[in-house]
């Protein structure tokens, strides 16, 4: 018989100060306290990090691939949001 699964936690590691936490993978642990420790032993044994977040995977709400069109495509034509959209004289500095 398959025994019940320990909760799955997603792991985010800050590689060094000044950088964001980045998703690196997941660990199983009975609880969040042990999850941080398990993540430390698995994902930072080569000095890959200075800070760890764990989030129980079931607590994450994600956008769905089915929603991709309505979520992300509408941003595609808002080219004026990007600085490269604007034409400025070449001899103007600091712009």
């Amino acid at each position: 018989m398959t025994e019940p699964t320990q909760p799955l936690f997603e792991v985010f590691v800050r590689a060094k100060r000044g950088l964001s936490h980045v998703h690196v993978g997941s660990v199983h642990a009975p609880d969040a306290t042990m999850a941080v420790r398990n993540a430390r032993d698995l994902y930072t044994r080569r000095q890959e990090g200075v800070s760890i977040w764990v989030v129980e995977a079931s607590d994450i709400t994600a956008s769905s691939p089915d929603e991709k069109d309505s979520f992300f495509d509408p941003a595609g034509d808002k080219v004026y949001r990007h600085p490269t959209f604007y034409t400025v004289p070449e001899d103007v500095e600091y712009l």
Partner: peptide
């Protein structure tokens, strides 16, 4: 198995 069971039981109690 008994260790994993214990960890799960403790998590539930907490």
């Amino acid at each position: 198995a008994w260790v994993r069971d214990a960890a799960a039981a403790y998590a539930a109690k907490s």
